[in-house]
Design a binder for these strands. Structure first.
Lengths: 178, 178, 178, 178
DNA sequence: AATGAATGAGGGTTCATTCAT
DNA sequence: GATGAATGAACCCTCATTCAT
């Protein structure tokens, strides 16, 4: 099963490379394998990419859960947002060329990630660190969508990320002036 | 040529239809033309889509300029943001299937749009309506990236848009609590 | 639409050639066309072969109907059987490489052909020319299956066909010795 | 080798299963072996299938010889025809997916089978049980071809087999009415 | 000038066969 | 000797582009 790892690794590398063509042949070549080999190892392109994206997402979801367990929801949110953006920045292509594919494991992980963020939001609200006049689910959706976008912005810059975090967290602050 | 208009119109319609296949043939069929005619009229698929997207973007840029001329920068910003999101919502596909294509006119218009937003930001800062601790260019980039993302979020909802505008504008408010 | 005819003709020729490989590329090459052209003209391999086989079967079905109208059922049966075998002989491959394909028009024509033969059988029974102790539908199935087989036998020979017709028709004779 | 037996057994089972995919891998999996092992043991797919089909045909040929030794040629013919059809019915795929393959042993056995049937025919003729106006070799070919076809007919039915045997044997009867 | 028709390039997938372990 | 793994060849299909009419 070393092939699976090679192929997944190659796909992950390509996912991280903006503009890379995600064809089976390109992935196989990068893995030093034949195209037929990677197809056989996974049973189809979708399954291969599902495995690759899942492998990228897994530690991220785990990290979100760890943060929730280790610190306050609001601190978890602040920290995780930074890391989420860094991750997305490092994997530009992860949401570009994947439309139309069937990626069940990836979908499940994404749901897990959204769930973790929602916990952070809800906890922060209970702690009075996040405004209570917005629906938690909507707030979560807002964060997910915008964090992803900031990461994908061209050109990306540390300043942009900082501005995003500042504006977002201030905008979520419950103690706003009238 | 009248055919150019027909083709551009068809492409615009398809761009607005999520999930539509943006093949030359599909565009030509919708335009009531032959595929060869469409290609010949533009010299390639890229040029055709460039024309179509430009035509979609043009009134948007114009609207931004009109708002700047008609009202205060901050009011212009608030109003334009809503309309920008509505536009993106109505043209989901506009940024999905266009990666990797060479669209010079579209790029120029996007720059114009960004420029107009930047003027709004800068004016708002001068008027004390937007915080001054963030770089205007970065703030503009932040708005552009996130507005687009909110529009493309699945599932989109009025609540999400409202939350976005609320959080963003509050986060940009210069009178924040310590 | 001259391409369609060329492609269908090429497919028909290949169908008649025992052992010929019925790939899209082989058909296209024989038609003097590119593989993509024939696929485009029909929308898929199945549709192409359906058209080709249908075109082969059509005159045969028509001939069966004409015979039914022109002469007695029994004469029609005798004549048609000879022609059916000759046809199958000339198109060996017609039933070999077609398993697993979706050929709606062909299926319909085959049903029409079976229906015509059944009419011949039933009429012959009424006229006392075919034994009545066998179910007409079964008799039709028997004739269809065996005629096809005789045609496909390797090596085929006029003697075999004659023997088949003799044995079959004598075996169907209602005036058998005790 | 024990593996040869396993592989041949698996191939035989798959040959009996209509619609089964006769790939090397499918055969190997059913045999509980690796695909490479199966190929290595036989030197190629053709040789494997040749062995499998031969093993299926062998007892059939033996049965034909036994019948010839045990009873009158005509009785042997009648009995064997029934069994031949039953065999073919139970091994639909045996002649479907085998076209184009090189199966020397199978070919030899088929020849042996045809030889046995020919002996039955010739003996029956000598005994006055089968008409003498047809060439024995041709009559044999007729029987072989049609028996196979009846077995493969879709939908198969006991009625069809009975009709076939009735019509064929009556048609071969030497005492026909003028 | 317009287009139906044609196609080369490229994509995903299957499979008999080969090879390193 | 057995096999998981690898692959080249072949297949069907899509699509932007070109060409003859």
């Amino acid at each position: 099963m070393r092939n699976r790892d090679l192929a997944v690794g190659a796909a992950m590398a390509l996912l991280a490379k903006p503009g890379a063509s995600l064809t089976v042949e390109a992935i196989a070549k990068r893995a030093g394998l034949g195209a037929a080999t990677v197809v056989r190892a996974f049973g189809g392109k979708d399954a291969l990419l599902d495995a690759a994206v899942s492998r990228l997402l897994e530690p991220l979801v785990q990290r979100a859960r760890d943060l929730l367990a280790a610190t306050t929801p609001y601190e978890a949110l602040r920290t995780f947002l930074r890391e989420l953006i860094a991750f997305q920045t490092a994997h530009h292509a992860i949401n570009d060329q994947l439309t139309g594919l069937d990626l069940p494991a990836t979908t499940a992980l994404r749901a897990g990630l959204v769930g973790a963020v929602e916990e952070m939001i809800e906890g922060s609200r209970r702690d009075g660190r996040v405004r209570a006049d917005l629906d938690p689910a909507v707030t979560t959706a807002l964060i997910s969508a915008t964090a992803l976008a900031v990461a994908r912005a061209e050109p990306s810059s540390p300043g942009l990320v900082h501005a995003y975090l500042t504006v977002l967290l201030d905008g979520l602050n419950p103690h706003l002036p009238a």
